[in-house]
Computed example of a mutant assay.
Amino acid sequence: MVERQEQAASDAVMTRIGQSVMLHHAGDREEARGRLLDLWTEIGEDGDPLHRCTLAHYMADTQDDPADELAWDLRALSAAEELTADRPAGHEDASAARALYPSLHLNLAADYAKLGRREAARTHLRRARTAAAALDTDTYGAGIRTAIRRLETRLGENDPDDPRSGPPRQRS
């Protein structure tokens, strides 16, 4: 009985995160940010790592300041790492967090690029590329890989193992 109540509460949090994301995608960034921030306050910094990871991942997208976006993306990555360290590989929440790693690192790479921190951007771009190798060839995986290639082009990075990347750039 207690387990079902915990699952229902967990699902309610994810539902509320999803509703906020839908608001953001519909163009109501301020309302989405406000709801996510309220939910963050409810969850707390020591709340369920999957909730914190998911919420921070989406909260980053609602930020106006690139430094704030970076701070939220770092929170998301920290919660994902906490989640995967605490649970075995086959655990559902740990698997969900691992599936987010390519996107988390891609977002961090983009954040660092916006802030002019190209080496940090390249580091996270490489981590995103490595993590993306585990993704399926579905729409999500294809979208992440495409976004990685776009950022690689922006940063002048090429994946030597990807024939679509072209010849490696000469570095001076």
Rank of each mutant, 00 (worst) to 15 (best):
32 A>M: 09
33 R>M: 06
33 R>H: 12
34 G>W: 11
34 G>K: 12
34 G>V: 11
35 R>K: 14
36 L>G: 05
36 L>T: 04
38 D>Y: 00
39 L>I: 01
39 L>Q: 02
41 T>G: 14
41 T>V: 11
42 E>I: 00
42 E>P: 03
42 E>Q: 09
43 I>G: 01
44 G>T: 03
45 E>R: 05
46 D>C: 00
46 D>L: 04
46 D>A: 09
47 G>R: 00
47 G>I: 00
47 G>N: 01
47 G>H: 01
47 G>C: 00
47 G>F: 01
49 P>I: 11
51 H>Q: 09
52 R>A: 06
52 R>T: 06
52 R>Q: 09
52 R>C: 07
53 C>T: 13
53 C>P: 10
53 C>G: 14
57 H>I: 05
57 H>G: 12
57 H>L: 08
58 Y>S: 07
59 M>H: 13
60 A>H: 04
60 A>Q: 05
60 A>E: 12
61 D>V: 00
61 D>G: 08
61 D>A: 10
67 A>E: 14
67 A>N: 04
67 A>V: 09
67 A>H: 02
68 D>S: 14
70 L>N: 13
70 L>T: 10
70 L>Q: 14
71 A>E: 10
72 W>D: 04
72 W>A: 04
73 D>L: 05
74 L>R: 14
75 R>C: 11
75 R>P: 08
76 A>K: 03
76 A>W: 04
77 L>F: 05
77 L>Y: 05
77 L>R: 10
78 S>P: 13
79 A>L: 04
79 A>R: 03
80 A>H: 02
80 A>C: 03
80 A>F: 02
81 E>H: 13
81 E>C: 07
81 E>Q: 13
83 L>V: 03
84 T>W: 02
85 A>H: 04
87 R>A: 12
89 A>Y: 06
91 H>P: 06
91 H>M: 09
92 E>F: 14
93 D>C: 09
93 D>G: 08
93 D>H: 13
96 A>F: 07
96 A>P: 07
97 A>S: 04
97 A>V: 05
97 A>N: 00
98 R>F: 03
98 R>T: 08
98 R>V: 09
98 R>Q: 11
99 A>M: 12
102 P>W: 01
103 S>I: 04
103 S>N: 06
103 S>F: 01
105 H>N: 05
108 L>Q: 07
108 L>D: 08
109 A>C: 13
109 A>K: 10
110 A>K: 15
110 A>S: 15
112 Y>I: 04
114 K>E: 07
115 L>W: 05
116 G>M: 03
119 E>V: 06
119 E>W: 05
119 E>Y: 03
120 A>S: 15
122 R>P: 04
122 R>K: 09
125 L>Q: 04
126 R>D: 15
128 A>N: 07
128 A>F: 10
129 R>G: 08
130 T>D: 15
